[in-house]
Simulated assay, not measured.
Amino acid sequence: MKFLVLLAVLFVAYLVWRGKRVKKNPPRPPARALPAPQDMLACARCGVHVPRSDAWISDGRSYCCREHQQQDGR
């Protein structure tokens, strides 16, 4: 009988120890994939840098908006 009580106490102690250990090291959420970096182009009119996908390109020159492209007159 004493052996069963000792075994039960050890089992409960193990569960408590294991529970504290799991709480200290919670699992990390999966990391989000970052988008690929884009090339930045400077506006030929004002010098503002914009991503290549947002730039207006005309005759090899890049612009930040349609108005600057029209103002440059090329």
Rank of each mutant, 00 (worst) to 15 (best):
D59Y: 09
I57N: 11
K23N: 15
P35G: 05
P26K: 05
E67A: 02
P27S: 07
P35M: 08
G60I: 12
E67T: 11
M40P: 08
A44M: 04
V48F: 07
P27N: 15
W17Y: 10
D72M: 02
G60V: 13
V50N: 07
L41V: 15
S62Q: 01
F3S: 00
S62H: 14
P30K: 07
R74H: 07
W56R: 14
D39N: 10
V48I: 09
W56E: 01
V22M: 09
P37S: 08
V12M: 07
G47F: 04
N25Q: 12
R61G: 00
L15R: 12
L6D: 13
P29V: 10
A44L: 03
Y14L: 08
K24I: 09
R61T: 04
Q38T: 15
M40R: 12
S62E: 01
L7Y: 00
Q70D: 08
R66H: 13
K20L: 08
W17F: 15
A36M: 11
K24S: 10
I57K: 06
Y14E: 11
C64A: 03
A31L: 15
P29F: 00
W17R: 15
R52H: 11
R18N: 10
D39L: 02
E67I: 13
H68Y: 08
R61L: 09
A31I: 08
V48N: 04
R74W: 10
V16H: 06
E67Q: 11
F11T: 06
V22R: 12
Q69V: 03
L34T: 00
Y63P: 05
K20E: 14
R28F: 03
R28W: 07
L41E: 06
R32I: 05
A31M: 12
D72A: 15
R52F: 02
A55K: 02
F11Y: 08
Q38A: 10
P29N: 07
D59H: 12
C46S: 03
P26I: 04
V9E: 00
K2P: 04
K24L: 10
R74K: 14
Q71R: 05
G47S: 07
V50W: 07
G73Q: 14
H49S: 11
P26F: 11
V48D: 09
P29K: 11
G47C: 03
R52T: 12
L7Q: 00
V9C: 00
C46I: 01
H49W: 05
L4I: 11
C64E: 02
D39R: 02
R32F: 04
A42I: 01
A13R: 14
A8F: 00
A42R: 02
Q71T: 02
C43M: 02
M1E: 14
P27W: 07
S62N: 14
V22Q: 04
A44K: 13
W56I: 04
W56F: 03
C64V: 06
L6G: 13
Q38L: 04
A36R: 03
Q71K: 13
